[in-house]
Simulated assay, not measured.
Amino acid sequence: MRKIVITLNLLLVVVLMSCKDDATSKINSSNLEAAGERDAAAKMLPVMAFEKVEHDFGSIIQNTPQETVFKFTNTGDAPLIITDAKSTCGCTVPKFPKGAIAPGESGELVVNYNGSGNNLVQKVVTVSANTEKGSEQLRIKAFVNPKGGAPVGPLKQS
């Protein structure tokens, strides 16, 4: 039995040693360059840098439309493409720029809120884009006072 094991080990060593071709001779340098360029391009991503990610409308009268603008800059090294922007409800409507935003360029996302609700209202707008995270979240809030009633909530300070 011991002779069989030794013989099989020697046979295995001979087989492994005979397959020792130089692998580097099989590499095509033009394919290597193309793969390097492709990998470098895959690492280039856009980045949405917002001036603010939350806006407080303060104390407002119920059903009074409000609007705010979220300004952003593409601080990445690839064109930014916003594919969608959605709110947590139909009372908040985001409008986003169509088309690509080049690196270093800025854009604006406009959010309209119809003023519905009572007391403290908070809404989230989710922006889908080709960034590394895939989405960004923006928030708006307001203290909504009933129509015809006296203000009961916090007043917006200037």
Rank of each mutant, 00 (worst) to 15 (best):
I4C: 11
I4Y: 11
V5H: 10
L10S: 13
L11H: 08
L16I: 14
M17A: 15
M17W: 09
S18T: 15
S18V: 14
K20W: 07
K20V: 14
D22H: 08
A23K: 14
A23L: 14
A23Y: 12
T24M: 10
S25N: 14
I27V: 15
N28M: 07
S30H: 10
S30K: 12
L32G: 09
A34Q: 12
A35N: 12
G36Q: 09
G36V: 04
G36S: 08
R38E: 11
R38A: 12
D39Y: 06
A42N: 12
K43E: 08
K43L: 09
L45R: 07
P46V: 03
P46A: 02
V47R: 02
V47C: 00
V47N: 02
M48V: 06
M48R: 01
F50C: 07
V53D: 11
V53I: 09
V53F: 00
D56I: 00
D56R: 00
F57E: 04
F57K: 03
P65R: 01
T73C: 03
N74K: 04
T75A: 05
G76I: 06
A78G: 10
L80A: 04
L80T: 06
I81H: 07
T83G: 09
T83P: 12
D84P: 14
A85M: 06
K86G: 09
S87N: 11
S87Q: 08
T88K: 08
C89M: 09
V93H: 03
V93S: 08
V93A: 04
P94C: 00
K95H: 10
K95C: 05
K98F: 05
K98W: 04
A100W: 02
I101C: 03
A102V: 09
A102C: 06
A102P: 13
G104A: 03
E105D: 14
G107M: 02
E108D: 14
L109S: 06
V110W: 00
V110N: 00
V111D: 01
N112D: 13
G115A: 03
S116E: 08
S116Q: 09
S116N: 10
G117L: 02
N118I: 10
N119Y: 05
L120T: 10
V121R: 11
V125I: 12
T126C: 02
S128L: 01
N130M: 00
T131D: 02
S135E: 05
E136L: 00
R139T: 13
I140C: 07
I140A: 04
K141W: 05
K141C: 10
K141A: 04
A142T: 05
F143R: 08
V144F: 02
N145I: 06
K147V: 12
V152R: 13
V152Y: 07
P154Q: 06
K156S: 12
S158M: 11
